[in-house]
Amino acid sequence: MEYYVAIGSIIGIHAMLGLSVYLVAISGQMSFGQQGFFALGAYLAGLSTALWGLHLLPALVLGVVVAAAVGLLVGFPALRVRGLYLAIATFGFGEIVRLAFLNVRYTRRIGDRVVGPNASEGFRHVRYIYDRGITPLEYLGIILLALVVVVILFYFLERSKLGAKLRAVEEDEVAASMIGINVTRVKVFGFTVAAGVAGLAGGLFIHYSSYIDHDMVALPLAIASVTYPIFGGLGSFVGPLLGAVALVGLTESLRTLHGAREFIYGALIILTMLFRPRGIVDEALVLRVKGWLPLRAARRPAPAP
């Protein structure tokens, strides 16, 4: 049971990271730096509960706000470049954050423990959920609740005018600007919200695992977060959710296979891309599914008499 609770928590947190990359991706950009916002959210939320004695909710909110604010600051200059340049620029940002935390020391002795970011030792002893007697199952509930909130946000975002603008920018930036869309503003908006979502994932993660260090927010996390939406599909927010569930679930269920596990993981990604280059839930699939829904059919205009 504990095992499944742990997997569920990891899936919830990684799904948020996947959604974060997805939101950048639907405006046609690719970010390899969401782990930087994840780290910012984790450190801020961890500091808030462990050192400043805040309640979990304001701590998470603080993490989200700081991550989003940094996203806004980074997004303005960074989104001047696109494509591979942006991927590499954002990866550079992620590495800067990681290396900064590798050097930051801000600790206090609480009881017999040294709490706080401690350079290469990482940030240990974030014991909020243990001290409050929150069980892992209850904490899984908190993670899933947060995920549901994010998914509802995405659901409405996709159906809103703003969502349409993001898609329009992906399709053709010039055409989008011709019909009066402020391309930069739309892209920076998407990037900022995405940074906030990654920060939320980070804040939830540090309270789940009770510690974080710079190794946990390096290139492998960047690759994982990018893999979920591209594997799962960029047609709808269901894609990254599916990607996170499928890939984390796969990794866990193959745990007994040792060496072969990662091999199958890698081979599966290659095969999926060969047959479905835009992921499993691509735009074509989304349109087809929408066609099946009776709700959609009812809204179709009545045939002309």
Binding site: V226, I230, L234, G266, L268, I270, M273, R278
Partner: peptide
């Protein structure tokens, strides 16, 4: 064997290959 016109697919296949080679 990759279909043309998809920017992200080759990125992903090489990530898959990276995982396969490294883990081997």
């Amino acid at each position: 064997f990759l279909r043309k016109g998809h920017e992200l697919a080759p990125l992903m296949t090489t990530i898959g290959m990276l995982i396969v080679i490294d883990e081997t």
